[in-house]
């Protein structure tokens, strides 16, 4: 990545104005993945100094600032003790400790990476995203739409839930071949699968079936049909489906 200019604004409004007024500008959160892209950037806007690095609990809602590092989430007491430890577990094998000390949850979410170990869990947990301009929206809405020129501030998760995340990797910290997240709240179950190799998606139909019929095998069959699985150089679609089935059954068993 070639960067022509680099600014660390001291206020959100400053950051937003810079973003709005500069074509080819880019937001830098951690920067670790972004820098691997081959492109020219007119202006890098780094959110380092905006105090978006926090994890607080308010009325059974967990609010995670977009600039919070993955390692902080891994070791945070809420992430470990709430939601069956789902938030801590989802980041545990993303790179090593070094990488997790600079990669942020905001950057991971906004990147919408296919290989993300984070998105399936956040989707299953029905997380909300708070943007500077666009306000609060459900993560699924964000995943389906292209948001232009905005800054992610915070991820909000309802702690009145239980969750389980399972991923399959060849070596310990490689990109997952598949990852499966399942959460249960008072309304029922939510299942999301990522790295299919396509990016994480909520399996709406399957989640509904599981909620109403409590039949995990049936829900699994429906999920394998509902979501698309493809073959790439890492794994075949058949294998991904088999892994999904195994991981989902495992996750469900441990959740209930």
């Amino acid at each position: 990545m070639i960067i022509k200019d680099y600014i660390l604004p001291n206020s959100l409004s400053e950051a937003y104005e810079l973003l709005k007024n500069n074509k080819k500008a880019v937001i830098i959160a951690g920067g670790a993945y972004l820098r691997l892209q081959k492109r020219e950037v007119s202006l890098a806007i780094d959110l380092e100094n905006l105090g978006l690095d926090y994890i607080i609990e308010e009325n059974k809602l967990l609010k995670i600032g977009a600039m919070t590092k993955l390692r902080e989430i891994e070791t945070n007491e809420y992430a470990i003790n709430e939601l069956n430890g789902m938030l801590s577990n989802m980041v545990k094998q993303i790179g090593g400790v070094q990488l997790r000390n600079i990669v942020t949850i905001g950057g991971s979410v906004c990147g919408k990476y296919n290989f993300s170990d984070i998105l399936p869990s956040l989707i299953a947990l029905n997380a909300s995203l708070k943007f500077y301009k666009a306000g609060i929206m459900n993560i699924c809405e964000f995943m389906e739409n292209d948001l232009k020129s905005d800054i992610l501030l915070e991820i909000i998760i309802d702690l009145n839930q239980n969750g389980m995340v399972k991923y399959f990797k060849s070596t310990y910290k490689e990109y997952s071949l598949i990852n499966v997240a399942i959460a249960r709240n008072k309304n029922g179950f939510n299942i999301a699968v990522g790295a299919r190799p396509g990016k994480a998606k909520l399996a709406k139909l399957s989640s509904k079936i599981l909620t109403t019929e409590k039949d995990i095998d049936k829900a699994c069959e429906i999920l394998l049909d509902e979501l698309s699985f493809k073959t790439d150089f890492r794994a075949s679609d058949k294998y991904r489906k088999a892994l999904t089935k195994t991981l989902l059954l495992e996750a469900y068993k441990e959740l209930v």
Binding site: Y6, I28, G30, A32, R35
Partner: peptide
Amino acid sequence: IPSCSYFTMK
């Protein structure tokens, strides 16, 4: 941290 992936400006 991995210094290869950390922008000096930060």
